[in-house]
Design a protein around this nucleic acid. Sequence first.
RNA 1: GCGGAUGUGGCGUAAUGGUAGCCGCGCCAGACUUAGGAUCUGGUGCCGAAAGGUGUGGGGGUUCGAGUCCCUUCAUCCGCACCA
Length: 1111
Amino acid sequence: MASYHFNSIEENWQKYWAENKTFKAENISDKPKYYVLDMFPYPSGAGLHVGHPLGYIASDIVSRFKRHKGFNVLHPMGYDAFGLPAEQYAIQTGQHPAITTHENIIRYRKQLDRIGFSFDWDKEIRTSNPDYYKWTQWIFIQLFNSWYNPKTNKAEDISSLIKIFEKNGYQSDKINFTKLEWRKFTEKQKTGELLNFRLAFLSEIMVNWCPALGSVLANDEIKEGVSERGGYPVERKLMSQWSLRISAYADRLLNDLETLDWTDSIKEAQRNWIGKSEGCSIKFEVDSNVLTQIPINNSGEIVKAPSKAKNSSVSFEAADKDTYHKLIKLAKTQKENPTKEEDILWKILRDRQFENIKFRKQYIINKFIVDFVSFEYSLILEIDGLIHSLPDNIISDENRTLILNELGFKILRFTNDEITNNVESVLNKIKDFIKYYKPSCNSTAEKGIKARSDNKEDEAKEIYTLENNIDNPIENSFFIEVFTTRPDTIFGVSYLTLAPENELVLQITHKDYLEPVLEYINTTKKRSERERQADVKNITGVFSGTYAKHPFTGKQIPIWIGDYVLAGYGTGAVMAVPAHDSRDYAFAKHFNLPIKEVVLPEKEVLLIGEDFGGASYDLKIGKMINSDFLNDLDVKDAIKKAIQTIEEKQLGKGKINFRLRDAVFGRQRYWGEPIPVYYDNGIPKTMDESDLPLILPKVDKYLPTETGEPPLARADNWQYKGNPLENTTMPGWAGSSWYYLRYMDANNTEALANKNAINYWQNVDLYIGGSEHAVGHLLYSRFWCKFLKDIGIVPFEEPFKKLVNQGMIQGMSMLIYRVNEENKFISFGLKDNYQTTPIHIDINLVSNNVVNIEGLKKWRPSEFQNAEFELEDGKLLCGNEVGKMSKRWHNVVNPDDICIQYGADTLRLYEMFLGPLQDAKPWSTQGIEGVHRFLKKTWRLFHNNANEDFAISQEEPTKAELKILHKTIKKATEDIENFSFNTSVSAFMVCVNELQDLKCNKLAILEKFIILLSPYAPHITEELYKLCGNQQSIEKAEWPLFNAEYLIENEFNYPISFNGKVKFNLNFALDKDLKEIENEVIANEQTQKYLEGKAPKKIIVVKGRIVNVVV
RNA sequence: GCGGAUGUGGCGUAAUGGUAGCCGCGCCAGACUUAGGAUCUGGUGCCGAAAGGUGUGGGGGUUCGAGUCCCUUCAUCCGCACCA
């Protein structure tokens, strides 16, 4: 008895492969290498569903094929083991996430093994293993120790930058110091400056804070305003964070896309994400006639922007003179007559030695007197119950907070009661704050200190300054700098628009317009990102009351504030050209602002001054008009000319802008790689490499501390060399950004991988995975690869040469319909007679859309036991819905179940047979029978049907049999190379059907055929190969060679068509003269019938293809 | 809105510019069987009894010939989402 017992066959061969290490990849080999990689799975608690293996099967087929072709194949698998779900589970249950993760991995491994993948399991890796994350931390240290040198266009050791500073100082738009100043800087100041250059750096930035997850999320982890995992709300928050300077690599990441064999859609997604735009910055002088906010210092003097040395600083003590004098007077009174509470707090602040922190009392900032302020920490302390502002001040408390926050200050408020009765709590709050918010040189406040240090000798003249974006401002002048890609349209500018978040807004707003402007800022702030995104059509904005001067014409241009301008892009300000930008157009229309055309479209000539029929002309094609020196130029030339002129006149300069933001690298989370950084007296330093790995410590709870610090702060003795260690951990993408390198030499303790191994395996030849990683993982991996190349670790620029995206396998949900507010369910066809709600039920309760009602009652007795059912034809029919395969919809299909019922070979073949790998498709088990039947047929070819014995013939194959075989060899080889797996499965079926028709059981044919089939169905083919008398695994067999001679035909049955429509067929020898064929076709009596007595105009004969008669 | 992809039987799909629907599911008929949910044979786009006609989302074009190339339009799916 030898029928096809797939269960035992599959189990035996899986054991054999494991024991014999059949798929071991050698790091030293004479064979050519081939590296096939699957995207790193995260071992979730739900296990694998049938969608996951789709890509793994495809990559496994390619791997096995390449081995047959004589390649040394690296085909590894491992786990991206850090991640939020395990941590969420840990928070809920208290179980260490390592335990959960380990259990999940065991389950994954069992499921993977069952499908018969040819992974080299000796190379398995887990990102949560200290042996692995040691090297993730090591890479982080290298990033910290590097900066990007734009001259050499690569990362270099930070020491080369320090040398530059020592020799030349540094000058740029935003950072300026001389070599002498550099030498005078304290260590802290130097650290701060260097952080502006390190590829891993600490900075204070707006982050996406998800309170529910207790974590910061990257932009690509947010979908539609909520977190991708869990769907929790996300808010914007200013935080001190580790980031990676991916923006330094923006150009290389963009340009090298061209070298990659990836799909256009992924490349396009990355291009969009990087978002390069070439243009020009232009400065608009704010009209001094209307600028009422004269910078004034504490003494009531007008402060001139310190010329030259700190030329980019503008005073922020902006209040008009009248207001200011009132303030000074008030401050003085308040200082002299402190309240009881004020006095208590002041004494504490003065006496309690907050290391190096100086607090000032009753200090004027902007239009306000604050109670206490520390500039080192940008911290304001306020005691409720005190008068905060001028008695007649129109600014509300809310707006006051807003303005102070806007200036980069954080505010701690205490009540009188708190100060009188619980001074310790007040003290602790301040201490906690100071501990959590490290002083950062990137914060606006810190820059103030920097500026201030120049005027040390004159305390009275201390001013709090803020750096802005203005280059070389002329004294007492005030500029708004915009970024535009259309400098050619400079003469079409009818207004400027600032983003509401733009720091300049508060400076330029006319005092009469302050209230509506503040109100507008507040409204836009309250609107969540989500609302703002969803609501593009709703145009909002407000006039600032101030005008700017056109740089060429000198004309007055109104300055508006509008939330259609993004604060984070360019300078957060635009020059609006409504005639040639649809967003500006919509805004101008809404507020009735002038529209001036300056580009004449090429084709349709529009009358000047006339509206463009409700739209703007945005294309960069046409001739310039109404544009002074640009007139009559083509747009493209005008752009060049405009930039040139603007640069000559020093009104701005050519600039390239990227949308790509630096990547936030810290998570307020436990289950991730600890960041190997400690704080020596507040200065961030990396650990010695020899002390790595920095092991994730034990904590009592996986939650933030009471003071809001990340869970690592709970660890005992979380210190290095007596200094506090960093409390945040690395994000999920850290470990997965370089894992492909670790597989090359997974157990190396000396390096992330041995140099020879890296040189042998090089980059990944084929990478298969879902397109959901288009911009996250794939961009970060490219970034790290380029960095590792710069520092000499890898010899290649790109990690993944060819990328194939498998389509998602969707789930088919089963829906039954409950009558609203009744416990009654209606069959699909009758549901329209009622008001119903669809309910998802377990797909196992349904076959052919018929619901098993008894099963349903057992599945959820509470819901269905006593329910009423309205049937059609005695059946309860359900509806279907295609969507995500998920536990939630009860539509998960587990590959284990398929393996038990049909076997792994059937599952593998079927997943490939479903359709093109790249296409998304809903999972349906309909059709799996056909694939299973095919395998049974294949098995029978090798067996005598009568007694089911293995029976194979040694006879010489016939020409017909060889033709079938070689046709299949050709198709199978081409299809694998084209990733067209579905068509090759179909070719195998054709082959078996035809061999069966010929009753062929010849070894010479069948043995070759099963080698072709073996990458797809490895178990059954191993078994048959062994039965054929082979001692070795089929894996070692050579791929059959295709011989075209067997396919040569000597005659062809030509379709005869008339005007392209086929009417009948005629048989001719293939070497027959084409003219003769033509003659015979004309002579044929059937032809005469279709000619209807007319003479043919023309006859086309294509050899071996077709005959077409033109009538 | 912009960008990308896809539209072919009841279903999954196939077709170097050359006979549209290969292969599989489902369905119909039959054979072998105590039985079949095993296996085998034949049929199966649609209309039509047949002859024949018609047919690849719609419209137009190029070509001797278009599912395939071009233009246009519609629908669905996926990205990006005011990037100046």
